[in-house]
Design a protein around this nucleic acid. Sequence first.
DNA 1: ATTTTCAAT
Length: 174
Amino acid sequence: LCSLRIHRKTFLFHFRNLRWALGRHNTFLCYQVDRKEPASSALASQVLLETHLHAELCFLYWLHDYPVLFPSQHLHITWYVSWSPCCDCAEQVSAFLASHANVSLTIYAARLYYFWRTEYQEGLRKLQQEGARVRFKHCWENFVYPHDGRPLRPWKRLFNNCHFQANKLQKILQ
DNA sequence: ATTTTCAAT
Ligand SMILES: [Zn+2]
């Protein structure tokens, strides 16, 4: 399933960075692909929601088929994901990055997925080793409709939980 | 400090 934008209500449920994010049984992946730095005129930009395949792998298949990946040209990929990649996806994405030196990836996550499990932690370290950057940032401005040009009204503990996730990640990566 | 989360019923 894919679309160009994510509805406000869906965003507010799935990208809410709660510590106990009950019932988020899907992962949304909003991607943007640029030649250099992320710009307003991206080469491609879309929202993925997959039920059978994890969204990250779905992205890799998309990228494989989309005529944008050339060895001679740099490509910057930006993801906004509601859950950070699982250990299997992290492995596959790391392998992809390892074999494509011209591709860089920035992942903006709402929440870390199963961050207390060692194999998931290892996945995040592999991503880092292959140059992927994981940060915590929402996609309100670039992917959500309708937002009528207004900034996101922060929910309770948005900033606290951002720091919580960032601290967890820092401990995992060090 | 803890948690149950790309479900499994
Ligand atoms: Zn996965």
